[in-house]
């Protein structure tokens, strides 16, 4: 591989843009295909499939073997609410290789003492989320219970390609949330993207258990279930 190609691969990855390196295993010939140019490539179908799966793979075409090095951006989780649940989520997310970013304009909550080593943004969510740029490799979780903070963030998430959107709150709280979002112009198809009640149904009670349920649901959305339901 050319160093120049390797450099582009690393640059694209850092900018959270997907790329696929196509290598002819026999000859060593290579080309780098950016996500935006995928459809025009001669291996478009295989490339699209592997990018969707987020997996590198060996494929056959025209009697040749091509290795596809798939570079999907690392998944990240953006949370509104520097609360007890997100305190538990932070170390768990790190173990799961999920980049966790917490947004909370309440500076009494969002302190480095409460969140050592965690990226904290104290801007209002509309500003913070616009600067982070929500993409298809981002999960968004609303945990504040406060419509002033959660709602603008949820609206930004619903307008984006986020692969997961979840919001904490009882069915009643969520019902009122849907009404507010409907008034803001989001139809049922849009608001159905929100996982609520949030998290896998494991009977979670403590903040750490709720954090586990939420991260479990995020991983499940990212990877997809492996076994058919019994």
């Amino acid at each position: 591989m050319d160093l120049a190609t390797l450099a582009v691969l690393n640059t694209e990855r850092a900018a959270r843009r997907a790329t696929i390196l196509v290598t002819d295993v026999e000859s060593g010939a290579q080309r780098l295909v950016k996500a935006a140019d995928l459809a025009a490539d001669s291996l478009a179908e295989a490339l699209e499939k592997q990018l969707r799966l987020g997996k590198s793979a060996l494929v056959e075409a025209d009697g040749k073997a091509f290795f596809l090095t798939v570079q999907a951006p690392p998944p990240r989780v953006i949370v509104t609410g520097a609360v007890h649940i997100s305190q538990a989520m932070a170390p768990m997310a790190q173990l799961l290789d999920l980049d966790l970013i917490i947004v909370d304009p309440r500076t009494a909550f969002a302190t480095p003492e409460r969140f050592p080593g965690v990226r904290l943004l104290t801007d209002w969510p509309d500003v913070a989320l616009a600067s982070l740029g929500l993409d298809g490799y981002t999960a968004f979780v609303a945990l504040t219970h406060d419509p002033k903070i959660d709602d603008p963030a949820l609206e930004a998430a619903l307008r984006s390609d986020c692969f997961y959107i979840g919001a904490l709150g009882s069915r009643k709280t969520h019902g009122r949330r849907i009404e507010r979002l409907a008034a803001a112009g989001f139809d049922a198809t849009a608001t159905q993207r929100i996982h609520a009640p949030i998290g896998l149904d494991i009977g979670a009670v403590s903040p750490a258990e709720i954090a586990l349920a939420i991260l479990g649901e995020i991983v499940s959305t990212l990877r997809g279930p492996r076994r058919a339901p019994a």
Binding site: M1, D2, L3, A4, L6, A7, T23, V25, G28, L58, F67
Partner: peptide, 13 residues
């Protein structure tokens, strides 16, 4: 397992 080994070429950089 099959492992592909290639040199990182710096000739064009």
């Amino acid at each position: 397992i099959r492992v592909y080994v290639e040199r990182i070429s710096t000739e064009t950089v």
